[in-house]
Design a protein around this nucleic acid. Structure first.
Length: 487
RNA sequence: GGUGGCGUAGCCAAGUGGUAAGGCCGGAGUCUGCAAAACUCCUAUUCGUCGGUUCGAUUCCGACCGCCACCUCCA
């Protein structure tokens, strides 16, 4: 059994098989950089990131390309309002995009092409389409002749008559057909422009993805991902342009990510109901936000709320406690890295039970993710495993360190595919601080312990309370008292 | 108007033609001088409503109700 992907083109779950065995070409529609991205945008970026991580986990070599739309009407308008140039605005927000996504733990794509750096490629593609009689020029703008592509509508399942009937858009009377769309827009006075055979202008939105995807990944790509709002017209138009030009399928698997909602409504920039990703990241860790964003399957809408984020925070705490308590066994068992087999050691009864659970986690996690990247189910398998580990840990004298170290290793691997357990820089800082404070706190704990032995509860509680005030929480356990930072 | 989707416990959310994963909250315990933290256990005879197909449906079909999205820039 292998990976299965729901293909929006066929509207079916399909067995995934890339063109070249073991290699995957993937294109993801990136942001238009006229502002910071919001959490809804982040959902799509994150799903793309996780699909890539999982395919790599499954042994594929993935080449991911994600574009940056750095010229379009919104950028021009916003730049004018702010009194900066379009390219300055795009640069600033492009930078911000990388900052924000990296804070969320999203790994950069292999290539992040920008529209403005691919003007010649787009012009070439437009020329090809004109030569094939699939495009026409009107007053310096070039339009795609939808009628020339007989399969137009195959992705969105829209019939021409439906499109005409439902057209709410003001139709440009110069167009041959209301459905025709621009590939090259003649520049109006004061607008940024590039020279072209049809005069100064700028590329239309859809043409950039066609050109850049084909340039960096070839004429047929394996996976094309994006938000569900892009299905029509954006992706439909990409198909029309690319396939008419090459005569080949443009993308083999189309993946569309459902919306993030807020108060039951779609989060969108035009709706003015969005929350910037960076704002969310100031309040919650990347792991919490990731956990929340993948707590539902990517094809189902997900409602954003503070409450949901808090649920993710609590859930993640449980996971972290478990991983943390396993970590010491792992660190004490360096040979675990060399031995991949979980079955090659002599095992007690308790061991074999946990070993069985480790195998179950691997199988169930893979099953869940194989099934159209079902992250919600995958998280479920991880938490089931956490319960089993906790039970084993309770009777830890029965289970060997080796097996517990193995549990740690496998648990961490699965968590890292989802990116819900990552030691980030901040944690490392905290750890350093903790190391330097340790002798001091230990001294206080020693004094407290003396007080406790003399049943001097006032002193011992005072130490506990005052430490708590400076975010140091102490825990009395059978093995003694430990401490940690809390926020 | 056209097209697509959704409706599962207090909340979030998987899932299957054969009798409901997981998380949060809540309750009960273990531990503790008391706490806190942590851990354990418990918590839907029921899957929007009404019909139909079936030995059997939450899962398939139909109708209805409610919600959402796309058809215009939007991830």
């Amino acid at each position: 059994m292998g990976v299965k992907i729901y293909n929006s083109l066929s509207r079916q779950l399909e067995e995934f098989s890339p063109q070249i065995e073991g290699q995957v070409s993937m294109y993801s529609c990136g942001p238009t950089v006229y502002d910071y991205i919001h959490i809804g945008n982040a959902r799509t970026a994150l799903v793309t990131d996780i699909i890539r991580r999982y395919l790599e986990y499954r042994g594929y070599a993935v080449k991911l390309v994600q574009n940056l739309t750095d010229i379009d009407d919104k950028i021009i308008t916003r730049a004018q309002t702010l009194g900066v140039s379009s390219s300055q605005l795009a640069d600033t927000n492009g930078q911000a995009y990388f900052e924000d996504t990296q804070r969320l733990g999203i790994q950069p794509a292999d290539v992040h092409p920008k529209a403005t750096e691919h003007i010649p490629e787009m012009i070439d593609l437009i020329k090809t389409l004109i030569a094939k009689n699939a495009a026409y020029v009107i007053e310096g703008s070039v339009y795609y002749r939808v009628n020339s592509f007989k399969e137009y509508g195959k992705l969105s399942r829209r019939k021409p008559e439906d499109l005409l009937a439902g057209a709410r858009v003001e139709v440009d009377p110069r167009k041959e057909d209301p459905r025709d769309f621009d590939m090259w827009k003649a520049a109006k006075p004061g607008e940024p422009f590039w020279d072209s055979p049809w005069g100064p202008g700028r590329p239309g939105w859809h043409i950039e993805c066609s050109s850049m995807a084909m340039k960096h990944l070839g004429e047929t790509i394996d996976i094309h991902a994006g938000g569900e709002d892009l299905l029509f017209p954006h992706h439909e138009n990409e198909i029309a342009q690319s396939e008419l030009a090459t005569g080949k399928p443009f993308a083999r698997y189309w993946v569309h990510v459902a919306f993030l909602k807020i108060d039951g409504k779609r989060m969108g920039k035009s709706e003015q109901n969005f929350i910037f990703l960076r704002e969310a990241l100031d309040k919650y860790s990347a792991e919490i936000i990731r956990h929340f964003l993948i707590s539902a399957h990517y094809r189902h809408p997900l409602d954003y709320s503070l409450e949901s984020l808090q649920k993710s925070e609590s859930a993640l705490k449980r996971l972290n406690n478990c991983v943390d308590s396993l970590q010491k066994y792992y660190e004490a068992t360096p040979e675990i890295e060399e031995n991949n087999s979980t079955a090659s050691v002599d095992t007690s009864h308790e061991d074999s039970e946990l070993l069985e659970m480790i195998k179950t986690l691997q199988i169930q996690f893979t099953d869940a993710m194989d099934n159209d990247f079902n992250t919600a189910k995958a998280i479920g398998t991880i938490f089931s495993f956490v319960s089993h580990v906790n039970k084993s840990l309770r009777s830890s004298n029965e289970v060997s360190s080796y097996t517990l170290a193995n549990a740690y290793k496998v648990l961490l691997e699965t968590c890292q595919v989802l990116g819900i357990y990552t030691m980030d820089e901040q944690d490392k800082d905290t750890e350093n601080t903790a190391a330097s404070l340790d002798p001091l706190v230990e001294l206080l704990l020693e004094i407290r312990q003396d007080a406790r032995e003399q049943k001097d509860w006032d002193t011992s509680d005072k130490i506990r309370d005052r430490l708590k005030e400076i975010d140091i929480e102490i825990q009395d356990t059978r093995e003694g008292t430990s401490w940690k930072f809390v926020s």
